[in-house]
């Protein structure tokens, strides 16, 4: 178990090293103009400079904060709304078709509406993030509730659990595997929409910084921003995986 997970980490690092090497070979051979495509060294230099005194650190924090805020909002609303809809078969039948209609709409379709109501503001970006990231959580919660073992509803009835206890102690935990998976998906969507929102509404953050770097042909800064974006996504998803493994310990055993 230990050794195989170590080997996995090693393989992952090896893959990364190969990727960087190929990158370096391409830039060394000048296959693409350095104006568009910086070498790994230049990207690293820009990264270090940006994080250790430049604007990059602040922008990263802006974006992370925006992403987390939108994600939290989406999670809270998604899970609570999903629970409300999920507990009642009638509510599910009532609202499910509407949800299915709304769900395929890309979050970007929501942007003009959000702009119309809120202008180019931070709340606008937040609403766009929350709206886009809402769906996985909402649907996972509804489906998780609907998929609860019917026998457990009978157990709850025989034990005399209240409706709230049934939701809290039975339905929510049994939907938890689905909800946790959706939280991870929601975080990815939040990051993407945070970037898009910042670009569109000229809000401070990595999105805007990347956009500006690209407009002024500062390719090393552009790539430094992208590397950080990747790192944010990776760290976020890893942290959630850890939480998942801990919360779903009961599942892992067999």
């Amino acid at each position: 178990m230990r050794t195989s997970s170590l080997r996995k980490v090693f393989l992952g690092l090896l893959g990364l090293a190969v990727f960087i090497l190929v990158w370096k070979l391409i830039t060394d051979a000048k296959l693409v103009s350095p104006i568009f495509f910086p070498s790994p060294e230049r990207t690293l230099a820009s990264l270090i400079k940006g994080l250790s005194g430049g604007a990059l650190l602040g922008q990263t924090l802006e974006t992370v904060q925006r992403m987390l805020l939108g994600w939290l909002l989406a999670s809270l609303v998604g899970i609570m709304l999903g629970a409300l809809i999920g507990v009642s078969r009638r509510a599910r039948a009532f609202i499910a078709p509407t949800l299915e209609l709304l769900r395929p709409l890309p979050a970007s379709a929501m942007i003009p509406i959000a702009i119309a109501f809120l202008g180019f503001s931070n709340p606008m970006v937040l609403v766009v993030i929350a709206f886009g990231a809402l769906w996985p959580m909402l649907l996972a919660t509804i489906h998780g509730f609907a998929a609860m073992e019917p026998r457990l509803y009978e157990v709850s009835a025989v034990l005399g659990l209240t409706r709230l206890q049934t939701i809290w102690k039975l339905a929510l935990p049994s939907a938890m595997p689905m909800i946790l998976a959706s939280l991870r998906l929601g975080l990815t969507i939040s990051l993407i929409l945070a970037i898009v929102g910042e670009m569109l509404a000229s809000r401070d953050g990595l999105g805007q910084s990347i956009l500006l770097a690209s407009r002024s042909f500062r390719s090393a800064d552009l790539f430094a921003g992208i590397v950080i974006l990747g790192a944010i996504g990776l760290v976020g998803s890893r942290l959630l995986s850890l939480a998942e493994a801990r919360l779903l310990r009961w599942q892992a055993t067999r």
């Binding site: 457990l152 009978e154 009835a157 025989v158 102690k169 935990p173 938890m176 009961w250």
Partner: peptide, 21 residues
């Protein structure tokens, strides 16, 4: 309806227990 003073042991124990507890 169901009553706390009447307990039932279901045949399918796998479904009647909470796997996360």
């Amino acid at each position: 309806g169901p009553n706390r003073s009447v307990a039932i042991v279901f045949q399918d124990y796998g479904k009647a227990l909470l796997p996360w507890r």
